[in-house]
């Protein structure tokens, strides 16, 4: 992780029968993301320091951050802050996509990194969501159809409790103040 202080906590690898260019487009264009990313549309300024935004289907802001690395079609990383209720109080994370060509397929690696000692209960949200999102992305690129959402998939209950506790105690204060 090239952003100092961020430690990888969740890594998900998936192989897709596609090209690096198409995978890059699927990760960065709204027409694609709305199909597989729980209806979210991406708005990304294609440069380092640019805005990185994901909007909910009703237009509300969901994720906001800034582009840290923009290296099409190989690596994209962005800071990631959830703009929703108590999630807003949490420090931002860093999400990186690495795209590696592998003959007629592509290896896509998603890495979620944090600057503080995140409890597993909070990581559980991403660990539940990313496999679904990236499995659906693979289906969109290979079959033209996403994985149909037939069950409601919200944040796990333990996650919401862990966030409440973290927001109250702010265990990241010491770490973040020393980094700034």
């Amino acid at each position: 992780m090239s952003e100092p202080g961020f430690v990888p906590k969740t890594v998900y690898v998936i192989y897709i029968a596609s090209t690096p260019e198409k995978v890059w487009e699927a990760l960065t264009s709204a027409e694609f993301t709305r199909q597989y990313f729980f209806g979210r549309t991406a708005e990304i300024e294609p440069k380092v320091g640019g805005n990185f935004i994901l909007r909910m289907p009703d237009g509300r802001l969901d994720i906001k951050g800034r582009v840290v690395e923009w290296d099409p079609p190989r690596r994209l990383s962005a800071t990631w802050a959830v703009d929703f209720e108590q999630f807003r109080e949490l420090p931002e994370s860093l999400v990186a996509y690495d795209i590696e060509p592998m003959g007629e397929s592509v290896k896509l690696t998603m890495t979620e990194a944090f600057q503080w000692d995140v409890p597993d209960a909070i990581l559980a949200g991403g660990r539940q969501g990313w496999p679904f999102i990236l499995s659906s992305l693979k289906s969109v690129l290979e079959t033209g159809k996403p994985i149909a959402i037939s069950v409601k998939m919200g944040p796990p209950k333990e996650m919401l409790e862990a966030i409440k506790e973290a927001v109250a105690k702010k265990p990241w204060r010491a770490v973040l103040s020393s980094n700034r």
């Binding site: 192989y15 029968a17 592998m102 003959g103 007629e104 397929s105 290896k107």
Partner: peptide, 9 residues
């Protein structure tokens, strides 16, 4: 399935 490149990988 993923193509022969997958097997090589």
């Amino acid at each position: 399935p993923l193509a022969a490149a997958g097997a090589q990988a």
